[in-house]
Design a protein around this nucleic acid. Structure first.
Length: 479
RNA sequence: GGCGGCGUACCCAAGUGGCAAGGGAGCAGUCUGCAAAACUGCGAUUCAGCGGUUCGAGUCCGCUCGCCGCCUCCA
């Protein structure tokens, strides 16, 4: 089967045929670094992280660029409010973003360009646009003439005349047409600025992505991604600029847009005050549960972040590791089996088919949990019959999990490590728990079940769950 | 007003022409000193509604209702 990608430009799933066979050039719009990144940034980053990993897994040589927009009105405003330089503010939030990404297990892209390091290219593209008659300088500003680009609106399905009719765009005196957008802006004193043929200034909002994309990947690329909201005007303008500047099209072969994250059924917005930062989400939940939550729905669907849904995903992660640990404990011989992928290629097919169908991670996760149930069933059957039937199936399940974790970026831990991490977050010191367990087991041995149950209850109130296993009592943290 | 999307069990969610995945919650059972975990069973004669195409539709087409996003900075 071939890889199919939903292309926002054609609104259809299309077979993925890169410009150069076996190679994939992918650019994703990164954050504008003026504040801590929120769960929406996490979704985009995780979605494209999986896409990046899967393309590599499928054997493509992938070059992946994700930018930092580090010069922008919002950065300037925020820096002024705080009385720091734009550079200092941007660097602070780039660092924070990188930390958040690392916490979420997001792999570093091949290139992570900054807008401020791409000024030369921005100026070059702007010059080219003026030279080709698609842009004009007015005062110290340079604007793109939207009407000169005949295909304007092809990505977002907008009609220029209707746009203007219902325009809420500020009418800027210097523009020839209200629809035109700035490629270059004259800087006010104290603002970041660079020398240009049009005087001291800074880039407009959309140009930096075109320039970074061209500089690091080329004039035409295979995949360009970002949040759904970027389709218009950002990506629409990018197409116009890039194709007009180079005369080459398509600028991008496949446009991909991820859906939004809502918080308790509401859109995240400043006015509602419900912006959920990644680091706050990670205080309440494990990174793995957050990642599982993000991958449990298709990347294009909107998802709803709720306390309840995160708790569910946390439980699912625990169920997963519990089963893996059980396999290790009860069937140590499984590890000795070298499960041969080649001779059982069909074994992975459902998972590959799901991913090939526009990166259907939700389907893969469904398959994974079916394997978990199957594995537990085999082990239960062996327990009651005394015969260990199903060695091959169990080794297959383990191979399956290992395989999926390569591109999902979850379920890759050793179960011991998972549970150790969890216990480290208990609200009570481990030694104390261990002490109470010893006390309780002494009581159990003496058949003093009243005392034993009291200790269980006491620990449960502190969020500690005890499980009496054949090998002894183990404890875990609730939730 | 224009463009786009969605509506599948108590909740989340996959499935886009051939017997309705999976997770969570619930109830009952096996196991357990009690629990927990795991397993087993139960739970949508049905996919917002109505019509149409088809041997066959959650899946395609049309209409209706409801929800949402974009059109302004936004992942």
């Amino acid at each position: 089967m071939t890889l199919k990608i939903y292309n926002s430009l054609t609104r259809k799933k299309e077979e993925f045929i890169p410009n150069k066979p076996g190679e994939a050039l992918i650019y994703v719009c990164g954050p504008t670094v003026y504040a801590l990144s929120h769960i929406g940034h996490a979704r985009s980053a995780v979605a494209f992280d999986v896409i990046y990993k899967y393309l590599k897994y499928r054997g493509f040589r992938v070059t992946y660029a994700r930018n930092y927009t580090d010069v922008d009105d919002k950065i300037i405003n925020r820096a002024n409010e705080e009385g720091v330089s734009s550079d200092e503010l941007a660097l602070r939030y780039i660092k924070a973003f990188d930390e958040d990404m690392a916490a979420l297990g997001v792999e570093l892209p091949t290139h992570r360009p900054k807008a401020t390091e791409t000024i030369e290219k921005i100026i070059e593209v702007t010059k080219s646009l003026i030279g080709r008659g698609f842009a004009y300088a007015a005062g110290g500003d340079v604007f793109f003439s939207v009407r000169k680009f005949g295909e304007y609106g092809k990505l977002s399905g907008k009609n220029i005349d209707e746009l203007e009719a219902g325009s809420r765009v500020d009418v800027n005196e210097a523009k020839n047409d209200p629809l035109d957008f700035a490629l270059w802006k004259a800087s006010k004193p104290g603002e970041p600025q660079w020398a240009s043929p049009w005087g001291q200034g800074r880039p407009g909002w959309h140009i930096e992505c075109s320039a970074m994309c061209m500089q690091w990947l080329g004039d035409t690329i295979d995949i360009h991604g970002g949040g759904k909201d970027l389709m218009f005007p950002h990506h629409e303008n990018e197409i116009a600029q890039s194709e007009a500047a180079t005369g080459r099209h398509p600028y991008v072969k496949y446009w991909m847009h991820n859906g939004f994250v809502n918080i308790e059924k509401e859109k995240m917005s400043k006015s509602l005050g419900n912006i959920l930062n990644i680091r706050d989400a990670l205080k309440e939940n494990s990174a793995e549960a957050v990642r599982l939550f993000l991958l449990s729905s298709h990347y294009r669907s909107p998802i709803d972040y709720t306390t309840e849904s995160l708790r569910e995903n946390e439980a699912a992660v625990e169920r997963f590791y519990k089963t893996i640990q059980r396999i290790g404990d009860e069937w140590p011989e499984v590890k000795g089996i070298d499960y041969c992928v080649q001779c059982n290629e069909d074994g992975f097919k459902p998972m590959i088919d799901a991913m090939d169908d526009d990166f259907n991670t939700a389907e893969v996760i469904g398959i994974l949990f079916r394997e978990i149930t199957k594995a537990n069933r085999i082990m239960d059957a062996a327990k009651s019959s005394g015969k260990k039937d199903g060695l091959i199936e169990l080794s297959h399940a383990l191979a399956f999990f290992q395989e999926a974790s390569k591109f999902l970026g979850i379920f890759a831990k050793r179960p011991e490590d998972y549970f150790a991490e969890k216990r480290a977050h208990a609200g009570i010191p481990a030694e104390e728990v261990e002490k109470l367990i010893i006390e309780r087991n002494a009581a159990r041995k003496a058949k003093d079940f009243k005392k034993a149950d009291e200790i269980r209850k006491e620990l449960l109130e502190k969020g500690i769950i005890l499980e009496d296993m054949p090998k002894g009592t183990v404890w875990t943290v609730k939730g």
